[in-house]
Design a protein around this nucleic acid. Structure first.
Length: 511
RNA sequence: GCUCGUAUAGUGUAGUGGCCCAUCAUGAAGGACUCUCAUUCCUUCGACCCGGGUUCAAAUCCCGGUACGAGCACCA
């Protein structure tokens, strides 16, 4: 056809019949950043991050904050920080976490979460919905034991309590609340269907009784005020609706939770938010991380606190010099795939290097220091750059008038070495006391190894702290005199990056 | 056991039927620059789980298998 009538005629037909075929297909480009958020409207997106405040945030929590926070920012929406603190027995909240978590979230995000919601303060709302459920008979109070109900669930049998009248349910609800019933006596269930394919969804439990006399809620204003408490699936579902959450992005372990909640939303006539999931992440060097376990270990004295550099908490990472930028880049790069993955720490470190190297001033730190006495002619003043890529930041000045310097013991393996920025030397007597070194050329005139060093006059005793193989090691050494404030990220030449903790302590970040 | 989910280089990741003898990052190896084993830059290496099917055309869709993970708590 093209041959007979020309390409133009063909194009004309296509133009009217199927214009989309004529659209230029652009070369596929690699997507940058996070995947597209479905059904998102600029300015109308509401997301949430909902940790249990049973401890400060861990590395894993950072994913929830970063991903949800980035979407909120990208869509000009809101991020809710919600404390899911409805369990006082199994994973009781830690009072200090209520202040620490918002602070940590802000550090990580670079902005404050737009709203903070505390579930334990919303109990009356959950009760309203529970009562509505009982009144409208899509919920019921079940007095079966856990064992018995399990049997009903697997055999797809309806529990006898399912047919309770509205009046009986409300009466039983009263008994749950007034203390007649104790934990285990009764639970509120959502009616779904006992022959649902997935057994996990069959008449799932929504609220239960907790012994808050014995296990009061740690928030003083709540304490033992309530006996009946919502379970996660119910609390989260109701709260998401009340807050107008539009998108939920969370771990795929909560997939069944979504299905349970969708069934509840159908009863209430609500529309469930768009949902995305990520898979499980392990870090090669750490394995998994459980807040509850860390809490026990800290209380048992195995770790010095939540910022112990061996722990995968945000506080610890921050203390050792991992930046919020690096963490954000790291999590965005992993994206929101449902794959279960295991990443090496080197990936995080590589992001961190990018984030800190350009700013980090260089310092000389001598582990295992050995004193050398210099022999021969040499200048008394030596200058090296604060940062080799930024001459404008000035020089570091070393005074070697007294001929006394310090080097690392392991660098004396070779006798022909060059002191960085200074001079070639030849070690004269390895075992001597003092060890002497003869000054050679001040100009660099060969390819001998270059080592870092310190003049005796410009040194300070210092400790380099390092978390490795589950223990904390302290290297006593000498640090170049400096006046960087606590918290400054520095690069210790030939060793790696470190953070200034105090006047005499550095903590090693990574190499 | 039942239910759900996932499978692309060593590790992550892009890719929604032709642009893919597959993207980017990280890693490893080599090199350039550099008075740090840093940073930066360059080069090289390396993958679509297996088997069927649909189609002119499959990493992409369907079915089966395998592997891994999660849920089946009066935890979150």
């Amino acid at each position: 056809m093209a041959a007979e009538q020309g390409v133009a005629a063909l194009q004309a037909i296509l133009q009217t019949e199927a214009p989309h075929l004529l659209e230029k297909r652009e070369k596929k480009e690699r997507r940058e950043g996070l995947p597209e958020l479905k059904n998102a409207v600029k300015g109308k997106v509401v997301l949430r991050f909902a940790p249990n405040p049973n401890g400060p945030l861990s590395f894993g929590h950072a994913r929830g904050i970063v991903i949800n926070g980035n979407y909120a920012k990208e869509w000009d929406g809101e991020l809710i920080l919600r404390f899911d603190d409805t369990d006082t027995v199994v994973k009781p909240p830690l009072p200090s976490a209520y202040d620490q978590i918002p602070e940590e979230a802000e550090w990580l995000l670079g902005f404050k979460p737009h709203r903070v919601v505390i579930a334990s303060e919303q109990i009356p709302h959950y009760y309203e919905h529970a009562i509505k459920m009982l009144e409208e008979k899509f919920g019921y109070i079940c007095q079966c034991s856990g064992e018995d109900f399990k049997e009903y669930r697997v055999t797809k049998t309806e529990c006898p309590c399912r047919s309770n009248s509205r009046e009986l349910n409300l009466e039983l609800w009263g008994k749950m609340n007034d203390g007649t019933f104790v934990p285990g006596d009764a639970v509120v269930r959502v009616k779904t269907s006992m022959d649902l394919k997935n057994p996990a969804l069959r008449d799932w439990p929504a609220l239960r009784i907790q012994n808050t006399a014995q296990h009061p809620h740690p928030r003083p204003s709540i304490g033992s005020k309530y006996r009946v408490w919502p379970l996660l699936d119910f609390q989260s579902a109701v709260e998401d609706h009340m807050q107008g959450v539009t998108h939920i992005i969370r771990g795929k372990d909560l997939m069944d939770s979504t299905r349970k909640q969708t069934l509840l939303y159908e009863h209430f006539g609500w529309t469930y938010p768009e949902t995305m999931y990520w898979g499980r992440v392990k870090v090669h060097e750490w394995g998994g991380f459980s807040t509850s376990q860390m809490r026990r270990d800290i209380e048992a004295g195995l770790f010095s606190g939540w910022d112990d550099p061996r722990l995968p908490t945000l506080r610890a990472l921050r203390k050792t010099g991992i930046t919020a930028d690096a963490l954000r880049d790291f999590w965005v790069e992993l994206g929101v795939t449902q794959k279960d993955i295991s990443v090496p720490l080197s990936t995080l470190y590589s992001h961190n290097t990018k984030s800190i190297d350009d700013d980090a001033p260089r310092l000389s730190f001598i582990r295992d220091p050995v004193n050398l006495t210099l022999k021969g002619e040499h200048p008394n003043k030596v200058s090296v750059e604060v940062h080799p890529n930024h001459p404008s930041r000035g020089m570091r000045h070393f005074d070697v008038t007294n001929n006394s310097i310090w080097v690392e013991k392991q660098d004396l393996d070779k006798s022909e070495i060059r002191l960085k920025g200074f001079a070639n030397i030849a070690i004269e007597n390895q075992k001597g006391n003092p060890i002497t070194a003869k000054i050679g050329s001040v100009e660099r005139n060969d390819r001998r190894p270059i080592i870092h060093w310190l003049p005796d006059s410009g040194k300070t005793k210092a400790t380099l702290m390092l978390a490795e193989d589950g223990e904390i090691k302290h290297f006593e050494g000498l640090i170049e005199a400096h006046s960087y404030p606590h918290g400054t990220m520095v690069q210790i030449e030939r060793i790696g990056y470190a953070r200034v903790l105090d006047d005499s302590t550095l903590i090693f970040t990574h190499s």
